[in-house]
């Protein structure tokens, strides 16, 4: 951490540096806030510190958390996806409809995820080939896909009570006391967090998002990177969609409206930058956990539903402002 360094090269400060780096990480700040909130809430409500409450909180954000993973990777490459709410619904509706037509539920789910991936591929092509921004391409996809969902279902919810129990198990079952959806989410989060930190392929995502031109001038095929990350985000979103279907045993054409805002907020609170190049899955998971924790706390405290959105908005504002101010101070040293 020495400010003036020897001309001999870069100085090394191992142990204290690593500790300080850990303390300075965005994730640590979030973790502290979450812990503080837990402490406060355990005094405020007798129901808070119960297994069933925590189980409910985890359940509430796990499936949406899968979407947050995809969104975070996309934000890192410098993209954005407003269509996730619609795409979740599309995967659900396509899988549900096929199931009702007699297709095997697993196969139908694969088709649902495939449909979601196809939407991602279409958006990716418009971004990479035509040169549209992610904002515009996904805004269009959001509206079109929602329309498609309404068309497929003719506007009425599909009732899927006849789903076989082994399929419902994915959404409703538990393994060793832990809900399967939570397990799926945790595994995905760990895998993607690791890949983003360590994999060489995923590193190109950071390069591209940090400075697309410089990445191109480093021999990275940036357009390909952007395309595949867009597809990845939609695919994970589709996966979340079919898990939702397994959980609720139905497919509603209005499902997921407004989900994109929650998902983007969680990723951004977790440290992802809308300018690209920054973000981590661990941070995003904490972000989504914080938002869910706040929601459930507010419910326990019997705060008006109308207040809840406001408070979430303020949290987003505070987190991002804090980050922005810290960054600014760091640069003008």
């Amino acid at each position: 951490m020495s400010e003036t360094s020897l001309p001999g090269g870069m100085t090394e400060t191992r142990a204290p540096g690593a500790l300080r780096k850990l303390a300075g990480m965005r994730e640590m700040g979030l973790l502290c806030i979450i812990l503080a909130l837990c402490v406060v809430m355990s005094f405020a409500s007798p129901y808070f510190l119960t297994w069933s409450n925590f189980r409910t909180i985890f359940l509430s954000f796990s499936i949406e958390g899968i979407v947050v993973i995809g969104m975070t990777v996309l934000l890192i490459v410098g993209g954005l996806d407003l269509s996730v709410g619609s795409v979740v619904c599309l995967a659900m509706v396509v899988a549900g409809k096929l199931f009702l037509l007699g297709v095997d539920p697993w196969l139908a789910s694969a088709a649902g995820v495939g449909a979601a991936a196809a939407v991602g591929a279409a958006m990716g092509l418009f971004v990479v080939r035509v040169g549209l921004s992610h904002f515009i391409a996904s805004l269009a996809a959001m509206v079109i896909v929602r329309g498609l969902c309404l068309l497929i279902t003719k506007g009425t919810p599909l009732s899927l009570f006849s789903l076989p129990p082994e399929f419902k198990f994915v959404g409703q079952g538990s393994l060793g006391g832990l809900p399967v959806v939570v397990l799926i989410f945790v595994v995905l989060a760990v895998v993607f967090d690791f890949l983003l930190r360590r994999s060489a392929k995923f590193r190109t995502i950071f390069y591209t998002g940090s400075n697309e031109k410089a990445a191109e001038y480093s021999g990275i095929r940036t357009k390909r990177v952007i395309f595949w990350v867009t597809v990845l985000c939609s695919t994970l979103t589709g996966l979340a969609g079919v898990i939702f279907m397994a959980r609720f045993g139905s497919a509603t054409p209005q499902f997921g409206v407004g989900m994109e805002l929650n998902v983007i907020a969680a990723a951004v609170i977790g440290g992802a930058s809308l300018k690209g190049g920054q973000g981590s899955i661990f941070g995003a998971v904490l972000g989504v956990a914080l938002l869910s924790l706040v929601t459930s706390s507010l419910i326990l405290l019997d705060v008006s539903v109308y207040m809840q959105d406001m408070i979430k908005g303020f949290i987003l504002l505070a987190a991002v402002s804090f980050d922005h101010l810290m960054n600014k101070r760091g640069k003008r040293g």
């Binding site: 060489a200 392929k201 590193r203 410089a214 990445a215 190049g277």
Partner: peptide
């Protein structure tokens, strides 16, 4: 604009032209 990843670590800037040199089994 074109040369560096200004907000990424120096080490990751240096390795970016040929990441394969510091990659083992797909991991950096």
């Amino acid at each position: 604009g074109e040369g560096l990843f200004l907000d990424m670590p120096i080490s990751q800037n240096v390795s970016s032209l040929r990441l394969s040199q510091v990659t083992k089994g797909g991991l950096v």
